[in-house]
């Protein structure tokens, strides 16, 4: 499946205008544009935390699916820390890493960036993992 087909297969990721920038070996990078419809605080123009969650959840799931042997996944839990507000108008980029996998569970960490040096949010999550049975 090519990168854009991956996003197009997820109607909500497509609705948020997400773009898969890189994927492989348990790592994913997905970005989305700033859009007035995604704003949470109309006074400041800052993107709603929920939209940042959606980006990080999608990116975490993609990282799990790119882990060697992965077949399906679903989010079990996701915790997001919002360190600062996203810059109004800036494209948001999420990077996720599936750093450990057991027979049934994948552990993921992710960060979100808006062009500044420090990430604006970080996340940790547990995802279900179903993989191919070892062939030995």
């Amino acid at each position: 499946m090519n990168a854009q087909n991956f996003i197009n297969a997820l109607p909500f990721a497509k609705a948020l205008g997400m773009r898969l920038d890189s994927l492989g070996d348990g790592h994913a990078e997905i970005s989305m544009p700033w859009d007035a419809r995604f704003v949470g605080d109309p006074v400041t123009g800052v993107i709603h935390g929920g939209a940042v969650s959606a980006l990080m959840d999608t990116c975490g799931g993609a990282a799990v699916l790119s882990y060697p042997g992965a077949q399906t996944t679903a989010t079990i839990d996701l915790r997001i820390d919002y360190m600062r507000a996203a810059k109004p108008g800036a494209r948001l980029v999420a990077r996720a890493e599936c750093y450990h996998v057991t027979r049934n569970v994948a552990f993921v960490r992710a960060t979100a960036h808006d062009g500044g040096d420090a990430p604006l949010a970080s996340a940790t999550g547990a995802f279900t993992f179903t993989g191919q049975e070892p062939t030995s």
Binding site: L10, P11, F12, S53, A54, T58, G61
Partner: peptide
């Protein structure tokens, strides 16, 4: 547009 997994189908976790 709220769907995340069209195969089930299920609402997107986000």
């Amino acid at each position: 547009k709220l769907i995340g997994n069209p195969a089930l189908p299920a609402i997107h976790g986000g």
